[in-house]
């Protein structure tokens, strides 16, 4: 959708075959669709949030349980994103630049969280770490809490955000090929030098793109986290869970105020994403 693509397309088909009317009709339908399903709900969130004025909005965000949910969401993202970044880059590097047995299996496994319902992703951890689960009794005997506590929330979030960085990097790295790395090695660079000075700079924008998507999901995940949270106020409620609680307590203004934080996050994500997308294309065009 961004500029380079449209110019590229235009260069290829000099004479569009569809009549003017059809093109305008298609654009119109797309615009109406976008307004109805994206712009309107977004506007509704903000108008509801600010319905009773800015001071009420601020007061709703300053409430201790809300603050604690924001803190928990930030902690969760701060743990999950770096871990998934590390995993994503290593996995993508291994898959794109080397051949080894079981490579296809690894690619399939990385995709697993995309194909599994988030509820199942949460239940997995309850079944393993829950009191009736495999190692629940042992954990309890040693006073270690995983599910219904922060570690469980982080585990479930890592699971659902697992594929984002790797999925973004693999095609990019594969498209770039191995030539530059091979050249570096021939010129006498060590493996690490090659990685940090050749591979990494080449995929910089791809990484940012993956990280921002991963972060958005880590902060916004509802299903999996809901299963492992236990919903203890001020302790194990993340922002999305807290929005639901506020809504169910007829506290609509506060619910939408907190929801507007997530909407802000989405807008920033979209912005950074478009920039990264554009830069990725540039990087690809340069190679």
């Amino acid at each position: 959708m961004s500029a380079p693509l449209t110019t590229a397309v235009r260069q290829k088909n000099h004479a569009p075959t569809e009549p003017q009317v059809v093109r305008w009709l298609l654009i119109g339908i797309a615009l109406i669709f976008l307004t109805l399903f994206l712009a309107l709900p977004l506007a509704a969130v903000f108008s509801q949030a600010f319905e009773k004025g800015f001071s009420v909005y601020l007061a709703a965000l300053r409430e201790p349980d809300t603050m604690s949910s924001i803190k928990l969401t930030l902690i969760t993202a701060a743990v999950c994103v770096p871990l998934n970044l590390f995993f994503g880059v290593t996995a993508a590097w291994a898959i794109a630049k080397f051949s080894f047995p079981g490579k296809n299996l690894l690619i399939t496994l990385i995709d697993l969280p995309f194909s599994v319902s988030p509820v199942i992703s949460g239940l997995i951890y309850v079944l393993i770490f829950g009191l009736q689960g495999w190692i629940g009794p042992w954990l309890q005997a040693h006073d270690i809490r995983i599910v219904f506590a922060v570690p469980g929330i982080i585990l479930a979030t890592i699971f659902v955000t697992f594929p984002f960085v790797a999925r973004e990097l693999i095609p990019l790295m594969e498209a770039q090929g191995k030539e530059e790395e091979e050249a570096a090695l021939v010129l006498g660079a060590t493996g690490l030098q090659t990685f940090f000075r050749v591979t990494l700079p080449n995929v910089k924008w791809g990484i940012i793109y993956g990280v921002i998507l991963c972060n958005a999901r880590a902060m916004g995940e509802f299903g999996a986290v809901s299963v492992v949270s236990g919903h203890i106020r001020g302790m194990t409620n993340t922002v999305p869970l807290h929005v639901e609680i506020l809504y169910n307590e007829y506290n609509y203004t506060a619910a939408f105020a907190v929801a507007s934080l997530l909407a802000f996050l989405a807008l920033i994500t979209l912005m950074v994403k478009s920039i990264a997308e554009w830069k990725v294309r540039q990087q690809l065009n340069n190679t």
Partner: peptide, 20 residues
């Protein structure tokens, strides 16, 4: 005192699974 609320059966299930 911390609070957790939800459907009654679901909450019981949580306690069974280790919600402390």
């Amino acid at each position: 005192v911390k609070q957790s609320h939800g459907g009654s059966s679901k909450q019981a299930r949580g306690v069974i699974d280790g919600l402390e």
